[in-house]
Amino acid sequence: MSTIRNDHEVARDLAIQAGQQLVRLRERNGFDEPEVLRTLGDRVSHEFLFSALGRLRPSDAVLSEEGADDPRRLGARRVWIIDPLDGTREFGEVGRTDWAVHVALWEDGELVAGAVSLPAQGSTLSTVDPPWLPEERPAGQRLRITTSRTRPPEFVRRLANQLGAELVPMGSAGAKICAVMLGIADIYIHAGGQYEWDSAAPVAVARAAGLHASRLDGSALTYNRPDPSLPDILVCRPELSGTLLASIRHVANLDSAGPHAGA
């Protein structure tokens, strides 16, 4: 079995195992103190993933939302980019299932493996076996754009109005991109600033599934940079990318300040 294949499986298995720990943590602690639960979730998942990667891939660097940034990653050939708990707000709310665990591997400038676990949904999407993308959307179906359920962005509202699209509120970035892969939505767009760990794993899986993923100006998404912030992102079915990029430019030009609301 090749090393690359093993990396796919490591990403998948660790995302699943971290997610299982988070589900048990929710069951054990309950939701009476949501901030305590959220803090525990971030820490428990980070410590598990960081320790497991140190054991399984001791020569690789790690970039984690919950860990101190190690500048040595900038000279490394292989860097694991992880978000131990994406959608912390939703994790601390009863009944919410739109939170995730992200595990991705960047190697020599590219994302080469990734997994997104949706533990409360009992689902994991990974580059081991990327989801199948239907060849065509149902005829006449309105476009559906995943958007924040707590901070609906004005820029995305304007874009939806121009496209005649429906907004689908949802929690974590991973859950939103998974919704596009699973056919629950057609488009994920974010214009308010993120970090690399918010999208690395979902983008790795989305690309493996055949989706388009880029910046809002159509330029490439790049990872393992000195500054891990990532201002904007578009993930969509490939046949929609040209129309969407043109519409994004049009809407941005209507606002002299450009798109500046979070998704």
Rank of each mutant, 00 (worst) to 15 (best):
G218Q: 05
G218I: 05
G218M: 05
G218L: 05
G218H: 05
S219Y: 05
S219F: 05
A220Y: 05
A220G: 11
A220N: 08
A220K: 07
L221M: 07
L221F: 06
L221W: 05
L221H: 09
T222G: 13
T222W: 06
T222F: 07
T222P: 11
T222S: 15
T222R: 09
T222N: 13
Y223W: 04
Y223M: 03
Y223S: 02
Y223K: 01
N224W: 07
N224A: 14
N224V: 10
N224M: 10
R225A: 14
R225L: 13
R225V: 10
R225G: 15
P226Q: 09
P226V: 07
P226M: 08
P226A: 10
D227W: 06
D227E: 13
D227P: 11
P228Y: 04
S229C: 14
S229Q: 14
S229T: 15
S229M: 13
L230A: 01
L230H: 00
L230N: 00
P231F: 04
P231W: 03
D232N: 15
D232C: 13
I233M: 09
I233D: 03
I233N: 03
I233W: 02
I233Y: 02
I233K: 02
I233F: 06
L234V: 07
L234S: 01
L234D: 00
L234M: 06
V235I: 11
V235K: 00
V235S: 03
C236T: 01
R237V: 09
R237H: 11
R237K: 10
R237L: 13
R237N: 09
P238E: 11
P238M: 09
P238D: 09
E239W: 14
E239N: 12
E239Y: 13
E239C: 10
L240F: 02
L240V: 04
L240G: 02
L240W: 01
L240Q: 02
L240C: 06
S241P: 14
S241D: 15
S241K: 07
S241A: 15
S241N: 14
G242F: 06
G242S: 15
T243A: 15
T243N: 12
T243S: 14
T243M: 08
L244F: 01
L244K: 00
L244M: 04
L244I: 03
L245D: 03
L245Y: 02
A246G: 15
A246Q: 11
A246I: 09
A246Y: 04
A246T: 14
A246N: 12
S247F: 03
S247E: 09
I248F: 00
R249S: 15
H250A: 15
H250V: 15
V251I: 14
V251L: 06
V251Q: 03
V251M: 05
A252S: 09
A252W: 01
A252R: 00
A252M: 05
N253G: 13
D255I: 11
D255F: 06
D255P: 06
D255C: 07
D255R: 10
A257W: 12
A257K: 14
